[in-house]
Design a protein around this nucleic acid. Structure first.
Lengths: 233, 233
DNA sequence: GGGAAATTATTAAGATTTTATTAAGAGAGA
DNA sequence: TCTCTCTTAATAAAATCTTAATAATTTCCC
């Protein structure tokens, strides 16, 4: 399975150039010209590396990097036109793994990408392609994230996008409680959240219905009163 | 435990300078002016990172890097006077994790060191000296903060959010007395507190009930008269 | 030191508030 | 039109807080 790489740069020529070089190395590229459009990808796709430009029109690269770090540990390479030392140090401090100044030499970029991927995957068995999970399984539940399929005891059940996301997030945090607020923010980015909002509960109900979960003895989604929901390990 | 960093450079001033900066960050530095003398250290010491100059009198930095990679996976940063693209690409291809050209800015070097260590240790639990799990244990009590679980002698007991918070705060201050007022403020931020308020006491009672604590000889939550509550070490 | 008086803590039960579930239907978007 | 999402309102469940009575501990005055 080829590594999946996120590329975000508002200068289309540069993003396109990077894409060409990465494709040439057989990587799967997810290219975006704005941070906002990239955010959805970050929250729904299992990625292996991200290349972010700092100067984006909507959200800057540093912030985007932090957003990634909230839930992921794959390497992040920051690209920038500025060569300021402070900038570099900031970038690296905020969770980036490498910092490359424009204009860069494509082959060096590729070399740094390879180096980061080697560190991330080869030297770190838990991230290696063999154990890599685009398929999340738990008990007799099985989710194929890319295919957007969900099997319950071998039988397919149809989930709406939101239901799918909720179940995926809960499974990714298997064993830990996830608050309604966190679910909300993971799914709808940083929109306003209020406790009066009942949508998460509604979707949870639909999910439990489809999973045949009873409230008094739920097999999958447990309610932790006053805290959130969780799936037991 | 401070991270252990190998520094190899035949230019003594540079090696010494790096050592000063690294010591300043509380790293333990193993400094050598030649590759040969460094080799023994590589084979006998458990290191966390290596900074290697390319132009060494005896064995060049690339070779040294490969020697390290024969048995170790900790990050290697290559230093060089040359800014050639081919060199950089070679270095990164041969197993290095980063490549910095001289003259370099010390703070950038430090930032890159930190970034590499973060990747190596923090993002990769198997190398991390401390467990990442958020578990507080005391006697036959065990709290998993993320899972919002509490085990008493291996058996799960269900605590309400407030009870959970109180027990957590007491355990975090194990050995020290925590006043009712402090508990109150930790849990309900900076709301008004009055001694007439009996809520903390009520929750303490529920907690003791669930923990099977008797008042005359409490195993967990002791009352310090006129002061507060504490859990003995 | 002994013994009220004052202070502080515990207990228990039930009212209140908070939080979660349910169900049905309106609204948006394909 | 159909599915999905979100809202509303009613209901249910659980946790929290209050009250008041009781118990324990300290204070302090003789």
């Amino acid at each position: 399975m080829p590594s999946k790489i996120l590329v975000v740069d508002d200068e289309a020529e540069i993003a396109d150039l990077i894409e060409v070089y990465l494709n040439n190395e057989n990587y799967k590229v997810f290219k975006f010209y704005s941070a906002k459009s990239a955010l959805e990808c970050i929250n729904t796709t299992v990625l292996d590396l991200a290349i972010l430009d700092v100067m984006l029109p909507d959200i800057n690269g540093f912030t985007l990097c932090q957003k990634i770090r909230e839930n992921h540990t794959y390497p992040v390479i920051i690209l920038t036109a500025k060569d300021g030392e402070i900038d570099k140090i900031n970038g690296l401090t905020l969770g980036a793994d490498d910092y490359i100044t424009k204009p860069f030499r494509p082959l060096e970029l590729i070399a740094r990408v390879k180096s980061q991927l080697r560190r991330y995957k080869q030297y770190n068995p838990s991230h290696s392609p063999y154990e890599k999970k685009d398929i999340i399984a738990h008990a007799d539940l099985e989710m194929d994230v890319n295919a957007h399929k969900c099997l319950l005891g071998g039988r397919p059940i149809t989930l709406t996008p939101t239901e799918f996301s909720i179940l995926r997030i809960l499974l990714e945090n298997k064993g830990n409680v996830v608050s309604a607020e966190k679910l909300f923010h993971q799914i709808w980015q940083d929109e306003y959240y209020s406790k009066a909002n009942n949508t998460i509960t509604a979707h949870i109900r639909h999910l439990r219905e489809k999973l045949n979960d009873t409230l008094d003895n739920p097999k999958y989604i447990k309610t932790i009163w006053g805290v959130g929901y969780k799936i037991e390990t």
